[in-house]
Measured scan of single mutants.
Amino acid sequence: LTVHVGNVTYHFDNPEQAEEWAKRMAKKYQGQIHVKDGQFRIE
């Protein structure tokens, strides 16, 4: 699973971990989480 934050990409084996990280990053950067094809993108 991949989480994109700006132009930085993080890889996770565990979906719960990826989702948790995406939520934390979205809160930190006050962005929206977009989920597409098993990838999380924070914008």
Rank of each mutant, 00 (worst) to 15 (best):
Q30D: 10
T2S: 11
R24P: 00
R24F: 14
A26N: 05
R41L: 14
M25W: 06
Q39G: 12
I42G: 04
G38S: 03
V35D: 04
V3E: 00
F40Y: 14
V5S: 02
Q17M: 11
Q30G: 15
Q32P: 03
F40S: 02
L1I: 13
K23A: 05
H11E: 07
H11G: 02
T2M: 09
D13K: 12
G6E: 05
G6W: 09
Q32W: 05
I42Q: 03
A18L: 06
V35Y: 15
D37C: 09
V35S: 05
E16T: 10
E20L: 10
N14R: 10
T9M: 11
E43A: 04
W21I: 01
P15N: 07
D13H: 07
M25T: 03
G38E: 05
T2A: 10
Q32Y: 08
T2I: 09
H34T: 15
G38Y: 02
N7M: 08
P15G: 07
G31D: 04
I33V: 12
F12C: 07
F40K: 02
M25G: 00
W21M: 04
W21L: 03
H4D: 03
G6T: 03
N14Q: 08
K27Q: 13
E20N: 08
V35W: 13
T9N: 04
D37M: 01
H4A: 10
D37E: 06
D13Q: 09
V5M: 08
G38T: 01
A18G: 07
K36A: 10
Y29S: 03
H34V: 15
D13Y: 07
V3I: 05
I42F: 03
A18M: 05
V8H: 12
R41K: 08
M25V: 07
H4Q: 13
G38C: 13
R41V: 15
Q39P: 03
V8F: 13
L1V: 14
Q39W: 04
V8D: 06
Q32L: 08
K23M: 09
A22L: 07
A22F: 05
R24K: 14
G31I: 12
A26M: 05
F12Y: 01
E19G: 05
K23V: 09
V5N: 02
Y29N: 03
E16K: 13
G6C: 15
Q32D: 05
E19I: 14
E16Y: 12
E19K: 10
V8L: 10
Q17R: 11
Q30S: 12
E20C: 15
A26H: 03
E19D: 04
Q39T: 07
K27T: 12
Y10E: 00
